[in-house]
Amino acid sequence: MSAPVPSPQEAETLKALLQGDEAAFSALVETYYSPLLRLAMAHVPSQAVAEEVVQETWLGVLEGLPKFEGRSSLKTWIFRILINRAKTRGIRERRYEPLSHGFLDDEGNEQPEQEYFLASGPMSDHWAVLPQSWDAATPERLLLSKESRTQIDAAIASLPPTQRHVITLRDVEGFTSLEVCNILDLTETNQRVLLHRARSRSERYWSPMCKDLT
């Protein structure tokens, strides 16, 4: 899939950066800090290392900028640099090799497990135990309490890297599916499958905590 070229707005930013406009650089660094840091976290062992990877990424961006030919969008290009650096750094830190990642890799099936459903009879593949309502578990309440916030972060951290990238960019950071496909070099279908697995797994991870809230 070919990434779209820089938007008119990005072309402006690009021009400003090449002219040495500090405000433009500062704004860009600020806007992308959170998603860049979160993506790096999928590959390295600590927030401190992830912060270093983000800084290295910007140095890489500055180095490449005069030669940046606009064959992809600026955003896609920056995020791809980050992912490459984070992967390299992760290998160097000997951390998060594929098999150490929980019990499933990116290909693992993350739907509710078979024991959720009746195995036989006229109602087979229907719920064995009906899902509860989570009325008390509002996002505001979950994010306010330290325990549930820890669980939320732990669910995301337990995901294989590509699933983690997809759910972080789509749901946490609000990127469009097209942007995510371009950054991660995925087809629309593949992106949707990874998003599905990541969301299903998060739902399953939080389910005991959400059911217990009243």
């Binding site: 989570w134 996002p139 979950l142 749901d171 946490v172 998060s202 739902e203 959400c210």
Partner: peptide, 12 residues
């Protein structure tokens, strides 16, 4: 539940 999961992620 799934919609609440997504909303929670969006509000991080």
């Amino acid at each position: 539940q799934m919609k609440q999961t997504i909303k929670t992620l969006e509000k991080l």
